[in-house]
């Protein structure tokens, strides 16, 4: 390639300006991933049906007749049967999705915002600030996450709000640690040094050079964390530390149907299936997101 050849055409950027950016290319790669698409569709169906619960649920989730209690799957009018108080399980599963998804996803979103920000700050700071933030984080890591969630919920008491708070507290250190190590690694790269060697402010370097590159590990981790969060939230509800009955929620439904295991075992599995299915889908989505955000996996 000679310079003279290239200079004959006058430089223009119009084509460059229209070309897809990084995020667009991530979207394109995600669209080509069948597993990712499938799990996203399943999740979409669950979320939409939870949102549209008043419209699509066949029965009131909280009222039932003792006459029809514990009817099996496939009973006319009660497609997925009824629970011990005769409430329609399908309706309760649809309505339950609202609370379950809310208590599964919200803490992760909050923890990602808080933990991500603190982690990036810790990763870009000097030894002192980093040391303070990371040592505090270490204290949280001394406890198993379930135990910590139970303990905090126990102290705070019942209720959706308290569940969300306790789960957020549990997840912040986990996200923080991922964000910090990703940031430390990125901050060592030559392109960050190149940016530092300009007149750019620290904030600009952080938002333009570091953030886009640490975002992918953080988002991938957060997505997989939702899978955990769903299960832990359901667990808190199962042991009665979450939402108050009679509100429908998958975890508490699992508890309510516990006794049915001797009479109609298939019924008692249903909420568990929802929890596991949603959780698995988030895990698969996390994997797909991971490879879609890996810039080097693009096919040339």
């Amino acid at each position: 390639m000679t310079m003279t050849q290239l200079q004959s055409a006058s430089p223009s950027v119009s084509a460059a300006a229209k070309a897809p950016g990084y995020w667009r290319s991530v979207g394109q790669r995600l669209m080509r991933d069948r597993v990712g698409i499938a799990s996203a569709l399943v999740l979409l169906a669950i979320v939409v049906s939870a949102l549209a619960a008043p419209l699509i649920a066949p029965h009131d989730p909280n009222s039932g007749s003792v006459m029809t209690r514990l009817s099996p799957i496939g009973t006319p009018g009660h497609l997925l049967g009824t629970d011990a108080t005769g409430r329609d399980i399908l309706s309760r599963l649809i309505w339950g999705g609202r609370l379950s998804l809310l208590s599964g996803i919200t803490p992760v979103v909050l923890a990602t915002l808080i933990g991500g920000t603190l982690g990036i700050i810790a990763g870009m700071s000097g030894r002192l600030v980093n040391g303070i933030i990371m040592r505090i984080t270490d204290i949280f890591f001394a406890f198993p996450s379930i135990l910590l969630a139970v303990a905090i919920s126990g102290v705070l008491g019942n209720g959706l709000g308290n569940t969300l708070v306790s789960l957020t507290v549990v997840f912040v250190p986990q996200v923080l640690r991922v964000a910090e190590s990703a940031t430390v690694q990125i901050a060592r790269q030559d392109y960050v040094d190149a940016a530092r060697a300009t007149t750019a402010s620290r904030l600009l370097i952080m938002t333009s050079q570091v953030l886009p590159n640490v975002l992918s590990p953080i988002l991938v981790f957060a997505t997989s964390l939702i899978a955990v969060s769903l299960v832990v939230a359901a667990g808190l509800n199962f042991i009665g530390l979450g939402v108050a009955p009679p509100a429908a929620e998958w975890g508490s439904m699992l508890n309510e149907l516990r006794d049915a295991i001797y009479i109609n075992p298939t019924l008692s599995i249903l909420p568990g299936v929802m929890i596991v299915a949603t959780s698995v889908c988030f895990n698969l989505l996390s994997d797909s997101l991971g490879s879609a955000m890996n810039i080097r996996e693009t096919d040339k």
Binding site: R188, D190, A194, S208
Partner: peptide, 15 residues
């Protein structure tokens, strides 16, 4: 400064 050519000298997520 011009850095050594490596996978880390240019921001991988920028055009």
């Amino acid at each position: 400064m011009v850095f050594q050519d490596s996978s880390t000298s240019l921001n991988p997520r920028a055009r």
